[in-house]
């Protein structure tokens, strides 16, 4: 995790420049685009956040919402993916991709998060 900490250190002080590989966030973020990533004190639903997966690779997906706890976990999902990612701890987020986020994108993220919560509640009740 030293790598992740180091990247987060950099992103705290200045934009971390990364290149996107993949089409899961199109059309908002196209394959091959170079983006700046900055660490924030607070992230909002709809932000595209960068975090490390279990295999150590960095991923940029849209933040849907939070699950309170210790640690607080965040739900993310690629725009073109039907399913959300596994929840990651808030402190594992490297930063936010510097890109305009439309109100529709934030609303869409909240709707996905609401659907995710509803499915989990129903599954628990079943």
């Amino acid at each position: 995790m030293a790598t992740l900490e180091a990247l987060r250190d950099v992103a705290r002080h200045e934009p971390l420049r990364l290149r996107l590989a993949g089409q899961c966030m199109e059309p908002a973020l196209e394959d091959g685009r170079t983006v700046d990533v900055v660490a924030e004190r607070v992230y909002w639903p709809g932000d595209v956040v960068v975090f490390a997966r279990g295999d150590g690779r960095l991923v940029a997906h849209r933040l849907l919402g939070f699950r309170p706890g210790r640690p607080t976990r965040v739900f993310t999902q690629a725009d073109r993916s039907p399913e959300p990612d596994s929840a990651v701890a808030l402190h594992e987020i490297v930063g936010r991709v510097v890109t305009p986020v439309s109100l529709a994108a934030r609303w869409g993220a909240l709707r996905r998060f609401a659907g995710l919560v509803r499915r989990r509640v129903l599954a628990r009740l079943a």
């Binding site: 790598t3 990364l18 290149r19 590989a21 899961c24 966030m25 983006v35 997906h61």
Partner: peptide, 13 residues
């Protein structure tokens, strides 16, 4: 090994 995973700057989207 592994230093270039730190220097590498590719992120999956």
């Amino acid at each position: 090994p592994g230093v270039w995973s730190l220097m590498g700057r590719e992120v999956r989207a």
